[in-house]
Amino acid sequence: MKPFTTLTAIAAPLPLANVDTDKLIPSRFLKTIKRSGLGKNLLDPLRFDADGREIPDFVLNREPYRRAEILIAFENFGCGSSREHAPWALLDFGITCVIAPDFADIFYNNCFKNGILPIALPRVVCEQLMQDAAMGENARLTVDLQRQIVVRPNGEEISFDIDPFRKHLLLNGLDDIGQTMQRAPAIDAFEARERALLPWMPPITV
């Protein structure tokens, strides 16, 4: 996983609430057995018409937003299905940071597992950032994870919250399976305890 440290990039404004994962990547694109290649269908229903042609005024079909690395949206971003294909599609498109007033839980978790930083900021702030983003090329945002700030084009710094453990993993690009494997003795001990306490718990064999 690529570490996330600081990012200065074009931000795409997507002024919609409840952007669900079916919209981020419709189920008919989930039939892959790989993680890559989904970017071309990111937000497919908004980006393409029924014949597969680009909808010219949709933000990600316009310059400079084809090169956006930050996405700004409204409430409840990533609701719906747990598909990790949603963050994979964002990542494959090149977006590594999403800013919204709040996020659906599973999507929020999934972002961190893929080196994407989801930032929750109040609605009014998102509206301001949305305006910044609308100015395109000349209005890049900077996200500094170490300092936990978003820097607006006018230099204003907006701080955000993130849980320290997730910050650590993201900053260092750490795979959390490896980390957990180091705790094997604690897991062994837990299993022994549970077996003693709940001996009726049956194994699955078919």
Partner: peptide, 20 residues
């Protein structure tokens, strides 16, 4: 509860999850 694919891998490998 539902989990993402990275977490599926995490559970397969460790039978645990990191959660708040």
């Amino acid at each position: 509860f539902g989990i993402g694919t990275s977490e599926v891998e995490h559970v397969l490998a460790t039978q645990t999850l990191l959660q708040r």
